[in-house]
Each structure stands twice: as C-alpha cells, then as structure tokens.
C-alpha cells in the first residue's frame, strides 16, 4: 500500500514537474491588460495602477494583484463588511487595548489612539531600527514592542494574534502609497532582496522574475499571474480560507518551484519584502486584500 502511494505520488510529481517545466512554452498568450476588465476599485483605494517611482525599474507600470483577479474575488474586497479579512482586523483592534505581559500594559498604553499614532506606519514597513542596526518588518516591530515594552512573549509569525495585529495596523494605512526607505542603511538590504528576486532556485530552476516580471498577465495553467506585489498583505486568500502573511506567500511560491523555502522572518525573506516594497513603491496599501 505504502509502495503504491509512493509510486502514485512520484508519477504525479513527475508529470506535474514536466507540465510546469513545459507550461512556460504553452502559456496562453494574453497581453497584460487584454483580459483585464474594469471592475471598479477595491474599497478605500483610489487607484490600482501607478507609474514607477524611478526610471531604472524593470516595469513600465506597477499593477496591484487586485487587477488580475476574477470579478467574484474582487467583489469580496469591494465591501468592507463582506471582506472576511476584517474578522482579523477587528480582532487586532481588540488586542490593541488588551493588557498583556509583566508590565501590565497594552499597545494603547504607549501608542494611545491607533488611528493617529499608527496612520502611515504600515506603509513604511519594513523600517530601519537604529538601535538594532537592522530593518524590522511589521511583525518584528510588534514583537520588539511585546518583549521590551510589555514584557510579554513574542507572538508566532503566523499566529492568529500576529496576523490580527499586523492586519489591523496595515489597514490604518489603507489607501496610502507604499513608501519604504531604500537608501542609506537600507540599501544593502534592497540589493540583497533584488538578488534573491532574480536568482533561479529549486528543481524547476525559476526565479521570482520568471513569473512575476516576464509573464505577469498570462496564465500559468489555470492561474492568472500577477506582478506579485506586496501592497495587500496580510491578505485573505480563498485558498487559505484565512488571512496570511507575505512570508507565508513567499514560502508557497518557493514550494511551487520545488525549492526549499527560507523561514518566515529570516533575513532572506525580510530582504525580499524590502525589495518588493521598493519595487511596488507608490502602490496603495489594500490590507486586508482578498486574493484567490
């Protein structure tokens, strides 16, 4: 029985691998934009396409992942009530005022009204931390606050609490353009991220750019490829049936190309997040976006 299952799995893996490897050649030729109808805008967003901030970037136009989704998926993001991502945003709001840790404090104790203190914060992450001499993602910033400010335990990267808090904070910057610092001490991190973006890895020997730069707007099997922008994260994914982090998505992409994924929160993923934020500079924050 075990042997049969293994054979099945192997033959399936082989077929899938061959299909994936050849699928590049069989991609449906749809020019980016051709099949993309105007289905309005996501809630709270004024535009889903922007011109790149600098001329030296590889893209002529930066397009939110929203644009590549079906009408039904888009509809879910057009109504803040129907968007299930708000179940997490609301929990984040509750956690904001919930005391935790040895110092008997909550986020509110230091940062007061989040609508004021946190507005725009999510749009600038990851951000350089002068004390730690490294950039911190929003998740890492939250955990620094928890351990040092509250005397509380760190939240796990993909825990319900962390996803709720990061979705809540990013949502307070909804509609604001992504604006990560890319110069100064952040420069080597952008470079590191760029390097990862363009390096082919895994059994399928693919890089991020193979799908999200060379072939966005086309179909890879039944999937409509986006530019892989990060402005909607944490995102409610229909596949996950819940909200998830950007690093979880990175992991999934790496598994798809049969590479060994880096760990969420690793320097590699942090660098990649910084590079993506720089790449998508100017695109409005959509958190919590809804994707397939």
């Amino acid at each position: 029985m075990k042997g049969t299952a293994k054979t099945k799995a192997l033959s399936a893996l082989f077929a899938v691998t061959m299909l994936s490897a050849t699928s590049i050649f069989y991609m449906q030729v749809v020019k980016a934009g051709d099949s993309l109808k105007d289905d309005g805008l996501p809630s709270g967003i004024s535009k889903v396409k922007v011109k790149p901030a600098t001329d030296d970037g590889p893209l002529d136009e930066i397009i939110s992942g929203w644009h590549f989704r079906s009408k039904e998926t888009k509809n879910l993001q057009q109504d803040d009530f129907e968007n299930p991502g708000y179940l997490w945003v609301e929990q984040g709001e509750e956690l904001w005022a919930t005391k935790d840790g040895s110092k008997g404090k909550s986020c509110k104790s230091c940062h007061d009204d989040p609508a004021k203190s946190m507005k725009g914060v999510g749009a600038n992450m990851p951000k350089w931390d002068a004390k730690l001499k490294r950039p911190l993602t929003l998740e890492q910033r939250v955990n620094t606050c928890r351990t040092q400010g509250l005397g509380a335990k760190e939240w796990k990267w993909e825990s319900r609490e962390m996803l709720s808090m990061t979705a809540f904070i990013r949502n307070l910057s909804r509609g604001m353009p992504m604006n990560v610092q890319a110069d100064g001490p952040m420069k080597p991190w952008v470079e590191k991220g760029k390097n990862i973006y363009y390096t082919r890895v895994g059994q399928l020997n693919m890089s991020c750019s193979n799908c999200h730069e060379d072939n966005y707007g086309k179909n890879i099997r039944a999937d409509h490829l986006s530019q892989g922008q990060s402005n909607g994260f944490p995102t409610y994914r229909l596949k996950w049936q819940k909200i998830g982090s950007l690093h979880r998505r990175f992991k999934g992409c790496m598994k798809n190309i049969r590479a060994t994924p880096y760990k969420p929160g690793s320097d590699e993923f942090v660098a990649l997040e910084i590079y993506l934020s720089q790449r998508g500079k100017g695109l409005e924050i959509e958190t919590p976006a809804v994707r397939n």
């Binding site: 009530f81 299930p84 179940l87 929990q91």
Partner: peptide, 9 residues
Amino acid sequence: IKTLISHIM
C-alpha cells in the same frame, strides 16, 4: 441583513 462569523468549518 448581512452576517459573517469567524470559523474554520
């Protein structure tokens, strides 16, 4: 009326 509840189902 619209209703939504968080549940793994």
